[in-house]
């Protein structure tokens, strides 16, 4: 709660600093009339072949959705890791280990299945 105020203030400071840099460079720089060629999207000297709004490979989608699932699984490991030593010191080490071992076994099964199904192949 107390920490959110500095976060907000710092975000404001950084955003102001950044916008100021962009603004200053737009004032100080020379203003030239640009030619038609300069206004084209940069391409290695040739006229552009295709628009930038082309389709994106479905692999990006697969990567993103697999990332979400694994990210959530990892986030569940964080509270586990945080309390692990307390459980161990209370004498429940084996219990808390097997709780997560089952979870990690499911994680590994999913990962192996995806590798075997070639969902993670890029070519």
């Amino acid at each position: 709660m107390d920490a959110i105020v500095p976060i907000l203030v710092l975000t404001l400071i950084v955003a102001t600093f950044g916008s100021l840099l962009v603004y200053v460079s737009s004032i100080l720089g020379p203003k030239k009339h640009a030619t038609h060629a300069k206004y084209m999207p940069y391409e290695c000297g040739l006229p552009g072949q295709e628009s930038s709004k082309t389709n994106v490979s479905v692999r990006y989608y697969l990567t993103a959705i697999l990332f979400i699932v694994f990210d959530i699984e990892i986030l569940f490991m964080y509270p586990w890791a945080l309390t692990y030593r307390e459980f161990v010191e209370a004498g429940h080490g084996a219990y808390i280990f097997w709780v997560m071992f089952v979870f990690i076994a499911l994680f590994v099964f999913g990962l192996v299945w995806e590798v075997r199904s070639k969902a993670l192949e890029w070519d």
Binding site: F70, M77, A81
Partner: peptide, 17 residues
């Protein structure tokens, strides 16, 4: 980010905070 986040679980296990 997955490998990064997962490699930190070990550190959390050691320090518990």
């Amino acid at each position: 980010e997955l490998a990064l986040g997962l490699s930190l679980v070990g550190i959390l296990l050691i320090f518990g905070t």
